[in-house]
Amino acid sequence: MTEAHRRQKQPQLIRGQLLAVVRSLLVEHGPHAVTLDAVAKQANVTKGGLQHHFPSKQALLEALSDQLFEEFECSFAEALSQEAPAPARHARAYIRTCFDHSPGGHTVETQRAIGLLALTLPQCRERWHAAMETALAADGNDPDTANRLLLCRLAGDGFWFAQMLDVYHLDADRKQAILKMLLTLCDGDNQP
C-alpha cells in the first residue's frame, strides 16, 4: 500500500490549497496562466488528483470566485455588525470593507483576484451586480440620501480599485483620514 493510501484524507484542506495556487497564478500571471497542468504542478498534486476536486479550469475559477465572494460577505457582515442602526449603516459597512487591509481583510492580492475574475467571468460580474443591487436597496427610498450614499460607495470602490492597481502610495494616516471623510459624508446631516 502506498503512502497516499495511508494518509488521512482532508479534501477541504486540499481544495483550499488548490484555490490558493489558483489565486496566486491568477494574480501573478493572469487568467491565461491558470491551467490544470500549472495548478497541479505548483500544488504538487497529480492532474487526476486536481480533477478529482475541480474537473476544469472553469470549475477552478468559479470556486475561487465563490471563495472570494464569501470572504467579502464575511468582512462586510463583520463591518455591518459594528455599525449602529442608522440609514447609512449599510453604506458605511461597505466602505469600511473596501478600506479593510487588516489580516484576513482585503489585501491587494485579493482585490486583484476579484478584479480579474470579474473581468473574466460573466457570472462573477452578475453575482457582484446582484449583491450591489441588494446593498443599494438597504440605503432607503429617499433619492437624495440614496444618491449621497451611492456617491460614497463609488468613492469607496475607487479607493479599492486604486489600491488594487497600486496607483497612489498613501500612508496609513492618509487612508484613515480619507475613510473618516467618506464615513462622515455617508452620515450627511445625521453626523454623530
Rank of each mutant, 00 (worst) to 15 (best):
A118C: 10
P122R: 13
C98T: 08
D157Y: 05
L149N: 08
V108F: 02
Q163D: 09
A4F: 03
A40S: 05
R92P: 06
A33F: 10
V167A: 14
C74F: 08
A155R: 01
R127S: 11
G158T: 12
A20I: 00
A33V: 11
H101Y: 01
A88H: 15
P11N: 05
T145F: 01
R148W: 06
A138D: 13
L179Y: 03
H169I: 02
T35N: 06
P11H: 08
R153C: 08
V167P: 00
L64K: 06
E73Q: 14
L185T: 06
A63Q: 03
V27Y: 02
L61S: 09
L121C: 08
A38E: 10
L60P: 10
R96A: 02
Q67G: 02
L119Q: 11
I95W: 04
T107L: 05
P103G: 03
G16E: 08
A20Y: 00
A118D: 09
S75E: 14
Q58A: 15
A113N: 02
A138E: 15
Q17I: 04
L19D: 01
T35D: 07
G140A: 00
M132S: 05
R92Y: 02
V22C: 13
S102H: 11
H169K: 11
D171A: 06
L116Q: 15
E62M: 12
V167I: 12
H32R: 14
L119Y: 04
Q176M: 09
V21G: 04
D171T: 09
D166F: 00
T134P: 03
H169W: 03
I14W: 02
G104A: 09
N141Q: 12
R7V: 01
L136N: 09
M1V: 14
R174K: 13
R153T: 04
L165T: 12
T110S: 04
A146Y: 00
D173C: 04
A113P: 00
G48S: 15
E109D: 14
V167Q: 06
Q176C: 07
C74R: 11
C186Q: 07
C152N: 04
C98H: 10
P103N: 05
E126Q: 15
E126A: 15
A20L: 05
Q17K: 09
S81F: 01
L25T: 08
D173G: 10
H90G: 02
P11S: 08
S75K: 13
V39W: 04
D187L: 06
Q42W: 01
Q82F: 03
G158M: 07
D157V: 10
E70F: 03
A77P: 01
L50A: 10
C152V: 06
A130E: 12
R148H: 04
L119H: 08
D157K: 07
L50Y: 07
